[in-house]
Design a protein around this nucleic acid. Sequence first.
DNA 1: ATCGTAAACTAACAATTGTTAGTTAAATTA
DNA 2: TAATTTAACTAACAATTGTTAGTTTACGAT
Lengths: 196, 196
Amino acid sequence: MPMKPTDRKTEIINVAARLFKEKGYSAVTVRDIAQAMNIKAASLYNHIQSKQEILVLIVITIAEEFTTVMEEVQQSEASAIAKIERIIQLHIDITLRNPDALACLNNDWMHLEQEADLKYFLKMRTDYEENFRQIVKEGVRNGEIQHHNPEVIIFSILSTLRTLYLWYNKTKSLSENTLRNDMRNVLLNGITINAR
Amino acid sequence: MPMKPTDRKTEIINVAARLFKEKGYSAVTVRDIAQAMNIKAASLYNHIQSKQEILVLIVITIAEEFTTVMEEVQQSEASAIAKIERIIQLHIDITLRNPDALACLNNDWMHLEQEADLKYFLKMRTDYEENFRQIVKEGVRNGEIQHHNPEVIIFSILSTLRTLYLWYNKTKSLSENTLRNDMRNVLLNGITINAR
DNA sequence: ATCGTAAACTAACAATTGTTAGTTAAATTA
DNA sequence: TAATTTAACTAACAATTGTTAGTTTACGAT
């Protein structure tokens, strides 16, 4: 009864995610992954079933994490702005914890080969955006949020949060608290001073 | 003296850009590109030198376009906010005109194989961000822009503008004017109503 | 000590990749 | 009309791809 049954597998997945982040799933060969682990390519197959399995595990795991929290948020009694604040912090959390997997989710989901995997992922993604849309619309309705096109609002906030992993390196000069606080302010209140 | 010396080549580049957008440079084969043009793969080489040449032409052309306009903006006498407004419109312009090439620029620049090409691209990108940074800092200094971390401001705006191509399809319900206007307002003034 | 298993290895495969050589048909120019 | 160019084709190549088979090594449990 081993204590860490899939430890080596997890290592492979983490190394692969880092490589996928840099060059994308298609440009990374199983030999690249093996070399990064100082083993031969064939040895990987003692732990994984296929290169594709690695991608599935990376993408689906993170997607499910987002889905779980979004469902909590949606069912809460908080105001629309408070809900969006919670979503902003969720994205920052996951970005700080696992930027590589997040890059993979963003850039390589279309390389999911099994139709079931792709469908499952796309449903989670669509539902996530739809939940976000409902929150924005609710906020506009009850006067918390300015009367702009909801699509523009959703996409403006989500695209920033989704690509945060790209800037994580550069923001090492930046403290986590400043990131969390300023990001929230910029996304919610904008950057201008006049009219305020 | 042909009127359109590289017409067929341009077709190839446009078709390739569309495919690159969907699957990424590495996952698209020259046979895919040929099939999309209803010819055989070998026939492509009557017009192009290599698959890599296609990528270079797509990426460098768009990058130079951004660079040219950014240099104009930087040298103008406009206010910081007016400069940022101009940059927002620039991104929307190019996104509406050539979303495929823009996707390629964003996702596939790391597959530039020649060191000279990669260096040239990265210099343009770094300079672009540095110019943006100077505009933001100037705006903070003279009281146009709120006192947040400049990196957060830059990245929040740029990441939205750079991934606009991802949402272009969905915003077909949206008029171009609404997009331009609401995008400007959301990015500059945020979305909240209170405190205003 | 021995057994069993985990995890590495070498060697090889079939398929796919970007690309080249050489050819042919159609269109343009002289 | 003859000559030349454009742009397609077929066939093939060498390299790289993900993956499998079969083997070896090290180590914890019996």
